[in-house]
Amino acid sequence: MIINHDFRIVFLHIPKCAGTAVRRPLESLNQWQEAGPPWRRAHPDLGVVDYAHLPLAVLRTHFPDAFASVVDYRAFALVRDPYSRFASSVSERIRWGEGALLAKLSRAELKKSLDESIDYLSRQPSSSCCLPLGYIHFQRQRDYIVLDNAPLVDAVYPVERVAQLREEVNACIGTAKPKMAECAASQQHANAALMYRNEGLRRVHRVVGPLTARLRRLLPASASKRMDRWMYVHRDQCARSLFDSEYVRDFVSSYYADDLDLYARVARM
Rank of each mutant, 00 (worst) to 15 (best):
M1I: 06
M1Y: 13
I2G: 11
N4S: 12
R8S: 12
I9F: 14
F11E: 02
L12Q: 07
H13P: 14
H13Q: 06
P15L: 02
P15T: 01
C17F: 00
G19S: 12
G19F: 05
A21V: 03
R24M: 08
R24C: 00
P25C: 10
E27A: 05
Q31D: 09
Q33N: 08
P37Q: 14
P38L: 08
W39T: 04
R40T: 12
R40V: 13
R41T: 09
H43M: 09
P44V: 07
P44C: 07
D45T: 08
D45N: 09
L46I: 03
L46Q: 03
L46H: 03
G47R: 06
V49D: 01
L59F: 07
L59K: 04
L59H: 01
T61C: 05
P64F: 03
A68Q: 15
A75Q: 03
F76D: 05
A77L: 10
A77D: 02
L78R: 08
D81Q: 01
A87V: 01
V90D: 03
E92K: 11
I94L: 06
I94Q: 05
G99A: 12
L101E: 10
L101K: 04
A103Q: 14
A103F: 10
K104F: 10
A108C: 02
E109T: 11
L110W: 02
L110V: 14
K112G: 13
K112V: 02
L114R: 08
E116T: 09
E116A: 13
I118E: 11
Y120E: 07
L121W: 04
Q124T: 08
C129K: 12
L131G: 15
G134Y: 00
H137N: 13
D143N: 09
D143I: 00
Y144K: 04
Y144M: 07
N149K: 15
P151R: 14
V153I: 15
D154F: 00
D154T: 07
Y157V: 05
P158T: 08
V159F: 03
R161F: 05
Q164L: 15
E167G: 12
E168I: 02
V169Y: 06
C172F: 06
K177G: 01
P178H: 10
K179N: 10
M180K: 05
S186V: 14
Q187W: 11
Q187P: 01
Q187H: 10
H189F: 10
N191V: 07
A193C: 11
M195A: 14
R197C: 12
R203V: 11
V207H: 04
A213M: 06
A213F: 02
L215T: 09
R216D: 10
A223T: 04
D228T: 04
D228E: 15
R229D: 15
W230R: 11
M231T: 15
C238H: 08
S241W: 02
S241R: 06
F243E: 09
Y247W: 13
F251M: 08
A257D: 13
A257E: 15
D258M: 09
L260Q: 14
L262H: 02
A264F: 10
V266K: 04
V266Q: 11
V266S: 09
V266L: 09
A267S: 13
A267I: 01
R268T: 15
M269I: 06
